[in-house]
Amino acid sequence: MMERRTLSGVVMRRMLLITNNRLFFGLCRPGLSVVAALEGCNDASTPLTSLDVVRIARDTIHRGWVLAHHPLYGNVRPRLQPFRTILLLEPERFVDGRPEPDLLSLHLISEAMTVYESERESLALVDAVPESLARDCAFLDAELMKETLAQAGVPATWSSDRTITCCRGQREGERL
């Protein structure tokens, strides 16, 4: 789990993984919540779109959560990749007891929304791409999250059959 140090010692920081990538649905780690079935999507068999993921992240950032990484891919357009995964860190700053939005996170997620909205009509959808393509895209999405997860203390590996495996600390993830 992401740590921050204070005068009194190390404080653990909760994390929120917002994703429509099936490879992450079973990812468990103390302090990590995997949000895969929210906002009108009640079971994992009808995954969110990538735009849904970005929108949920934006709304959560407005509640003070902080981006751990840039919300856009490098070199991959929304209409080429049906999956998106975003890791958020719990609010750090509070004013009058209420979480204060992180301005850099707000700026970046707003710019990302502009990009995703501009391709709304041509978004790649999980159910609309061939299975082999969906498998490759899911794998790439997971791969491109690997460094972020590792830096956040969630080392994960993908086996040859391309399913995700937690490396340590497995137990039921917390809910929001």
């Binding site: 840039h70 490098g74 999250m145 460094e147």
Partner: peptide, 9 residues
């Protein structure tokens, strides 16, 4: 480099 995490950037 052009890394993914905001800390790296």
């Amino acid at each position: 480099n052009e890394n993914v995490t905001l800390a790296d950037k």
